[in-house]
Amino acid sequence: MVDLGVIFRPQLPLERLRAMARAADEAGLAELWLWEDCFFDGGIATAAAALAWTGRLRVGVGVLPLPLRAVTLTAMEAASLHRLFPDRFILGGGHGVQEWMGQAGVRVDSPLTLLREYLTALRALLRGETVSTTGRYVRLTDVALERPPATPLPVLTAATGPRTLRLAGEVADGTVLTAATRPDTVRRARALIGEAGRTDPHRVVVYLHAAAGPDATARMRAELDRWREPMLPEYAREVTASTVAEAVANLAEAGADSVVLQPTADETDPAGFARWAAEEVRPLVS
């Protein structure tokens, strides 16, 4: 069965993260995802807090803008969280929104080259290997973690276009797809990822727009207008637990391993949203 999760959006007050994480954990959701959008809250710090506040919930960062961090530091931080909270931290990294990377002074000429070099080195470090490389953007000399993960830590990446999806199939262990993704897009993504010819599992995580409450349909229309996206077919009449569950099932059938519900930016009760996802949506997902 598909794993169901929720997103704590960076627009929400950070002080509400604890309540949402605990609600998701207690209600039995599989995952909580955080965004490291510039220039909000740090993904590693918030993931560590959410992991410490919960007991079984997996916590993912989708995704870290990799140009902001040296690959060695990312490997050290990820390995620490994986050892402290075994098999509960989900590491995601991407080349970042180029406008933001420019503001931060770390924009590169070839984001895909950076992503290839970075993810290749990162995964090797997390496997406990000693890494030396002289790439265009990643340069390491005999670097090895003193405390590498005791068990495998998969590395996911964000991807939308064909080139990035093919690269994800080559150098990542999973892919994160945005809430603009439709079932046919998941199928195309799976096909492009599969062109790498790898036989090991490749986890596909898909975000899904969702809203709860009596005004859910109106709020969803406003949210999609902000994203300049059309209304989801499942939501054509109204947004309810049933129609959200239908959308989850359709994405799962198309190849999503995990569907993560993305609340609207004006959500006032993130903890209640997590409980609604677990108690009202999840039982309806076939």
Rank of each mutant, 00 (worst) to 15 (best):
V2Y: 00
I7A: 07
I7S: 06
Q11T: 06
Q11E: 10
Q11R: 03
L12Y: 09
L14C: 03
R16Y: 03
L17P: 02
L32E: 06
W35Q: 08
D41Y: 15
G42E: 15
G43M: 09
I44V: 12
A48N: 07
W53D: 13
V63P: 01
V71M: 09
T72W: 12
T74A: 10
M76I: 14
E77Q: 15
A79M: 11
L81G: 06
L84C: 06
G94L: 11
M101G: 06
M101N: 11
D109Y: 09
S110P: 03
L115I: 01
T120V: 05
R123M: 07
G128V: 12
V131W: 10
Y137S: 11
Y137K: 13
T141P: 00
E146C: 04
R147Q: 13
T151R: 15
T157H: 01
G161V: 01
P162V: 11
A168V: 07
A168N: 09
A172T: 05
G174E: 00
L177M: 05
T178S: 10
A179Q: 01
A179R: 04
R187I: 10
R190Q: 13
I193H: 10
P201N: 10
P201I: 08
R203A: 14
G213F: 06
G213A: 04
D215E: 14
M220D: 05
E229V: 05
P230G: 15
L232Q: 04
S242M: 03
E246T: 15
E246C: 10
A254P: 03
V259Q: 05
Q262W: 12
T268V: 08
P270D: 07
A271M: 06
G272Y: 11
F273A: 02
R282H: 01
R282I: 00
